[in-house]
Write a protein that binds this DNA or RNA. Structure first.
Lengths: 207, 207
DNA sequence: CCTGTTGTTATGCGGTTGCATAAACTATGC
DNA sequence: GCATAGTTTATGCAACCGCATAACAACAGG
């Protein structure tokens, strides 16, 4: 019997349990009973905190995306130069906990749901635009700092390219944690980005 | 009642039905009955061609990956220059049928299976190494053609970077078929690649 | 202490669905 | 026409799923 908790503490535990469950056994194993097992409680409790199974799934998806976002943007301080901010952001996106088999698995498991379920689709769109915009700003800042003044289309294209690069490296890194070490992944990412944006990398000033 | 067929024709239809089914309704809807419906036959027939549900799933995954591979490498002729070959390859990877919501959905639906099922994992590894190697050769050829003679690590890193870029653009393109048109995606991809490899793009000779 | 509220369990229901099997039927080649 | 490959129909039977509800445990305030 689980010890009694107060406040929305349990709710949080349940959401995390959902994520671990999905990461370990896949979305099809994310049944009310199974999730409850992961959380160490009994199935009925889920209905106490969420009005349906869809509810807890949406909450889990939201938390997952929010964590990804935070893991990347949380490392950025206001006192940095634009280039430092961009670099921090890139590095975070090429390190754990973002680059992990689990995060990729969660992403892949959730993605299909956003195609059949409107609520899930909304959640994805929300975070997608949020990340995209924030990212564009980062790129914009870094470019300006080096005297580049890109047009709107140029900026958009560069953002798409670098964003794509990072996403692709994220996948490669998460899928081959054995064969590709994290340091090399970061080196590759930073170096490639500096070439794409035509700005020197911070540690290797020239190239 | 479906008309009678001969040879392994039906088998092929069943595999395709599996893929359509997964793309449209997700892996959890890929039940024996549902797949049979998509194929226009009855459930019992599946067991005639495949020894279990896992069997047909593996066959479907194999076909899916093989098609992706073919869609990209099939466009390459032996009489082209290395650069042309690379460009063709990149363009194919940034066009339908590779860049489609369906292919991404299939990919995302299958990926988790490769983490719980050894047979599926083998299939993924097989095609993964195959694509990686082929891609590295393409890059290598293009670099040589421009007088670059990369070291092994350089070549590997460049391959990872460009490969990541393409994968990332594939995701972005497949997820936002509305907001991002295919031509722009290709422009972005080719341009970015030429910067990464430090070789001029074919149509815009200088930049 | 008692009581009301909140957190938690236990249990049951109705229903779906899944995979597999076996036996019956049909077309087709020889 | 007979044998065989292809196909359907019917069925078994179990797992299990999501949801609901009622009983039980803990804690807070009066």
């Amino acid at each position: 019997m689980a010890t009694r908790r107060t406040g929305n503490d349990r709710e949080s535990v349940l959401i995390d349990a959902t994520l671990t469950c999905i990461a370990r056994e896949g979305i099809s194993a994310a049944t009310v009973r199974n999730i409850a097992d992961y959380a160490g409680v009994t199935n009925g409790l889920i209905r106490f905190y969420f009005k349906s199974k869809d509810g807890i799934l949406q909450a889990a998806y939201r938390r997952f995306l929010e964590r990804l976002f935070e893991a990347a943007h949380g490392t950025i301080g206001g006192d940095m130069t634009a280039c430092e901010r961009l670099e921090r952001y890139l590095l975070a996106n090429l390190s754990p906990p973002i680059v992990t088999p689990d995060s990729l698995l969660l992403w892949a498991n959730f993605l299909p749901l956003t195609h059949y379920d409107d609520a899930m689709a909304d959640i994805r769109r929300h975070w997608y635009t949020r990340t995209t915009l924030a990212f564009r700003d980062l790129i914009h800042g870094a470019l300006e700092e080096h005297g580049h003044a890109p047009s709107d289309t140029e900026l958009r294209r560069l953002s798409v390219a670098v964003n794509g690069l990072i996403d692709g490296l994220w996948i490669e890194g998460s899928l081959s944690t054995e064969t590709l070490d994290i340091n090399e992944l970061q080196t590759i990412g930073l170096d490639a980005t500096s070439r794409l944006l035509d700005i020197p990398a911070s540690h290797s000033p020239k190239r």
